[in-house]
Design a protein around this nucleic acid. Sequence first.
DNA 1: GCCTTCGGAAGTCTTACCTCA
DNA 2: ACTGAGGTAAGACTTCCGAAG
Length: 329
Amino acid sequence: MAASGSSFSNITSFLRNQQPSSQPLDSSLFLSAPSIFVSGSRSMVSFEAEGGKGCNGSFFRAFDMDDNGDECMDEYFHKPEKKRRLSMNQVQFLEKSFEEENKLEPERKTKLAKDLGLRPRQVAIWFQNRRARWKTKTLEKDYEALHASFENLKSNYDSLLKEKDNLKAEVASLNEKVLARGKQEGHMKQQAESEEETKRLLHLQEQEPPQRLLLESVSEGEGSKVSSVVGGCKQEDISSARSDILDSDSPHYTDGVNSALLEHGDSSYVFEHDQSDMSQDEEDNLSKSLYPSYLFPKLEEDVDYSDPPESSCNFGFSEEDHALWTWAY
DNA sequence: GCCTTCGGAAGTCTTACCTCA
DNA sequence: ACTGAGGTAAGACTTCCGAAG
């Protein structure tokens, strides 16, 4: 670009040098120049060639000199087109007009051209360029505004992220406390029930046979209670356990009791609450896990809780983190 | 529907002007 | 002080496209 301009300047300089400096160049030479050398610079050729003519060698400079501007105007309207920078006054006038309306109607164009001593084509081009540059600036401003808005949102997001981390740590701490308390209570209850059951069995052993049978028949009608005592044992296991109990000589005598108690002890690990109030989903989740559902405020469908880690209070946070990161990005 | 004219948008070229080494 | 290189602003042009007659 610059190279072509330089070479073109060299060419025009060459052309100038071919003529005596005191004599004006042949205008036909200038008119033919663009088609020969460079397209799209016709007016510049004229300007370069006639640089020494007009008012002080520059036509538009005449507009800056208000005193003799009229003389130059007359000369201007009878001369071939020239390219010069517009004067400050012309630009100010055009700017004012542009602020009023950035589109140019034909009548307005003609009037502006007449008022400013420009060709209508010049006015049209000035408005075209002005619109293009206004659009560029507007885009830059819009970008800056959006960028500032983005930075603001990013800052807010970062602070929310910190707040989330703090809340997460708080939840984890509270869950640990709840779990420890639950274990403690479950252990105490297990001990109490174990002692009570032992006392009852000892009492059964001490009864006379008729009384034992009577007690047995009574226990028969309270199968649910018995099953509640033996916890998760199957019906046949219960009967066999009963026979073990009745048969004090059986080597499984104490084992049966202990296993039943152990089963019960394990189930008592689940904190007591009315399971009938649970929804089907909660029951399903509970069937997968012996851990209390309230430790997991919301159970994810695709998460396997069947084997919770020792520190189950933190269970699911990795998933939550993943979801949050997905949300964040 | 096709053609012509006109104006705007986008991209480009070219020069004027300024700064700096 | 002069000069050339490099960057930027601005005027002008080209091409393309859509609207209107």
